[in-house]
């Protein structure tokens, strides 16, 4: 793993927490680390915890959505958890639609959602 964002394995799900500001180099390393981990672990699902982010602008949103779409190409569903209410409000007001990721309130619900989503 080359970047600063840790990726943990929980059964056939990968869990990662974005706890730092996503800037170009950090974002790129994050995405490649995620994809390499997906390949190595053959994970069915990816959960990205963004509860530590107090701001998501279109740049961050794009990185997250892109990561979801990249994971999808590798056969993995992605769920974003922990989105703060003010971030959800801001993204909708801006008119931004995040495509490529599902969302759930917290980790428990995220895992539940992954169970329910059709495989593949």
């Amino acid at each position: 793993m080359t970047g600063v964002i840790p990726i943990l394995r929980m059964g056939d799900v990968l869990l990662t927490t974005v706890h730092v500001e996503l800037r170009d180099a950090v974002a790129e390393a994050f995405q490649s680390d995620v994809l390499l981990a997906l390949e190595k672990r053959r994970a069915r699902g990816l959960i990205i915890d963004i509860s530590g982010l107090d701001m998501v602008d279109t740049y961050v949103a794009r990185i997250l959505a892109e990561t979801g779409r990249m994971a999808m190409l590798m056969g993995t569903k992605t769920v974003l958890v922990g989105m703060r209410p003010e971030i959800a409000a801001t993204l909708v007001r801006m008119g931004y639609e995040m495509r490529g990721v599902h969302t759930a309130l917290d980790l428990d619900e995220g895992l539940e959602l992954l169970q329910k989503l059709p495989a593949g």
Binding site: D54, M55, V56, T58, E86, T90
Partner: peptide, 14 residues
């Protein structure tokens, strides 16, 4: 408040 702060900060970040 949290909503206004997030809105302003996000606009400024963009």
């Amino acid at each position: 408040d949290a909503f206004a702060s997030a809105a302003l900060t996000t606009a400024a970040s963009e």
